[in-house]
Amino acid sequence: MSSIEIADAIDEKPAAPPARPASRVGLRLAGFLLPVVLAIIWEILVRAGLANGRLMPPPSVVGRTLWQLAVSGELWTHAAATLWRVAAGFGIGAAVGTALGALTGALPLARGLLDPTLQALRAIPSIAWVPLFILWFGIFEASKVALIAVGVFFPVYLGVAAAILSIDRKIVEVGRVFRLGRLAMVRRVLLPAILPDWFTALRGGLGLGFMFVVAAEIMGASEGLGYLLVDGQQLGRPDTIIAAIIAFAVLGKLADGLLLALTRPFLAWQDTARDRL
């Protein structure tokens, strides 16, 4: 073997291991195994008379309630109202959080002026904003969307600011070595460096948006899954409460999956350990 062939063999990158889609699908399906097994066990215990299903209805009763709500159209009305509120609040909170996070992360002066106040506001419980937003915006949609936007804002703000502050100085020096302009530096170096943390912050903000929508819909809503929760409590219907909780879980998971699918193409350049497992 010649010296050129030896050098080529040394420089050759190891081939990536073949993808195993079947095993990944199996792992995703296994994630549903635990709740299904727990539901079956509870159903058996209630039917055998070993557990009281009055306050914690068995899956058959909850499933029947969900079916009745779906057939009547009530479930879709409540779900659509909740999704609209979360989408509006998420859009506003994510946009403002990204802008202020980038501002305080990039400019020391803005960080010194704004960050202490925002950190103090972050410690305020969500329910404490309710009376103020009702006073400002009334009991209609504006106050609910504002409360959700507040919940989304803080994780996005913190994620973006922290991502900018934690950019490795070495990759910035590499960009300067290649004499990248200001815009090229942002597009080719800085933006890719913060994208993973930004998308993670967006997912965290979306999760908090679904949490805050419950508090938003409790304050005088006439429709929405949060209203369905309160209605179940007032009527003494634990099956309705659990049905609303399940609907929240399904919608939250679908929304998170959609956000993950939309952001994944922007991270296709990453070579992570997860892609090789």
Results as ranks from 00 to 15, higher is better:
Ser3Thr: 14
Ile6Leu: 12
Ala7Ile: 08
Ala7His: 06
Asp8Ala: 06
Asp8Val: 04
Ile10Arg: 07
Ile10Gln: 05
Glu12Gln: 11
Lys13Gln: 09
Arg20His: 13
Ser23Tyr: 14
Val25Arg: 11
Leu27Cys: 07
Arg28Gln: 11
Gly31Pro: 09
Gly31Val: 15
Phe32Tyr: 05
Val37Met: 00
Ala39Arg: 09
Ile40Asn: 00
Glu43Thr: 06
Ile44Val: 13
Val46Phe: 02
Gly49Tyr: 01
Leu50Cys: 00
Gly53Val: 11
Arg54Cys: 06
Leu55Phe: 15
Pro57Asp: 08
Pro57Leu: 09
Pro58Thr: 13
Ser60Ala: 15
Val61Phe: 00
Val61Glu: 08
Leu66Asn: 02
Ala70Val: 09
Glu74Cys: 00
Glu74Arg: 12
Leu75Arg: 05
Thr77Val: 11
Ala80Met: 14
Leu83Asp: 10
Arg85Tyr: 06
Phe90Pro: 02
Ile92Pro: 13
Gly93Asn: 03
Ala95Asn: 02
Leu100Thr: 15
Leu103Val: 12
Gly105Ile: 09
Leu109Phe: 09
Leu109Ile: 11
Arg111Gln: 05
Arg111Glu: 14
Gly112Pro: 07
Leu113Phe: 09
Leu113Lys: 04
Leu114Trp: 06
Leu114Ala: 08
Leu114Asp: 03
Asp115Ala: 08
Pro116Phe: 08
Leu118Lys: 05
Leu118Glu: 01
Leu118Tyr: 03
Gln119Phe: 13
Arg122Asp: 06
Ala128Gln: 07
Trp129Asp: 00
Trp129Tyr: 15
Val130Glu: 03
Phe133Ile: 08
Trp136Gln: 03
Trp136Asn: 10
Phe137Leu: 05
Gly138Pro: 01
Ile139Arg: 02
Ala149Pro: 10
Val150Asp: 00
Val152Asp: 01
Val152Ile: 02
Val152Lys: 00
Phe154Ser: 10
Pro155Gln: 09
Gly159Met: 02
Ala161Leu: 01
Ala163Lys: 04
Ala163Trp: 00
Leu165Lys: 10
Ser166Cys: 14
Ile167Met: 06
Ile171Trp: 03
Ile171Val: 13
Val172Met: 05
Glu173Gly: 10
Arg176Asn: 04
Met185Ala: 04
Val186Thr: 09
Arg188Ala: 14
Leu190Thr: 15
Leu190Gly: 12
Ala193Met: 04
Leu195Val: 12
Pro196Ser: 05
Asp197Gln: 09
Asp197His: 08
Phe199Cys: 00
Phe199Ser: 07
Arg203Cys: 04
Gly209Tyr: 02
Gly220Tyr: 11
Ala221His: 10
Ser222Lys: 08
Glu223Tyr: 06
Gly224Leu: 01
Gly226Asp: 04
Leu228Gly: 00
Leu228Glu: 05
Val230Lys: 05
Val230Ser: 07
Gln234Ser: 05
Arg237Val: 03
Ile242Arg: 00
Ile242Gly: 01
Ala243Asn: 04
Ala243Gly: 04
Ile245Gly: 10
Ile245Lys: 08
Ala247Ser: 15
Ala247Arg: 02
Ala249Gln: 01
Lys253Asp: 07
Leu254Met: 10
Leu254Lys: 03
Leu260Thr: 14
Gln270Ser: 11
Asp271His: 13
Asp275Gln: 04
